[in-house]
């Protein structure tokens, strides 16, 4: 049977579903945040006495330590999620594997982010 539909008509409604621009912008916004946050976080962690458990806990429990860590990890997990999403979409073309990896990426970054927030609040309060 001859298919009269044009290639454009076949793909319309599939794919990025119009969210590509928001993804692109979010990746930039988080990268600008991380540009400022990462050096501060790395410097503070490196001078905190880590990996000694007591010293690291004291750093994470201090107001500045907790705030900088929260900001850095929040921007970081957001940036990581969208970054790895693009890597998966670029290299994994098998539908099932791709969906599995995308789900894993989302669950890992969002889940670990929330668990980290809970842990920091527990330490700092």
């Amino acid at each position: 049977m001859t298919d009269y539909r044009t290639p454009a008509a076949k793909v319309r409604g599939l794919g990025a579903s119009g969210h590509g621009t928001a993804h692109f912008i979010a990746q930039r916004v988080t990268s600008i945040a991380l540009f400022f946050l990462v050096p501060v976080f790395v410097w503070m962690l490196a001078t905190s006495g880590a990996p000694d458990p007591a010293a690291t806990r004291a750093f994470l429990a201090s107001p500045m330590g907790a705030i900088v860590t929260l900001l850095t990890l929040t921007a970081g997990f957001h940036h990581m999620r969208s970054g790895l999403q693009v890597v998966i979409e670029d290299y994994v073309h098998k539908a099932g594997t791709k969906a599995f990896l995308l789900l894993g990426n989302t669950f890992l970054t969002l889940g670990l982010w929330l668990v980290t927030v809970f842990a920091l609040v527990k330490l700092a309060l």
């Binding site: 990996p51 458990p53 990890l73 970081g76 997990f77 670990l112 982010w113 842990a119 920091l120 527990k122």
Partner: peptide
């Protein structure tokens, strides 16, 4: 980052 986050959580508990 995943490793550091897991470490922070272990420290907190």
């Amino acid at each position: 980052a995943v490793a550091i986050a897991v470490w922070l959580v272990l420290l907190a508990f």
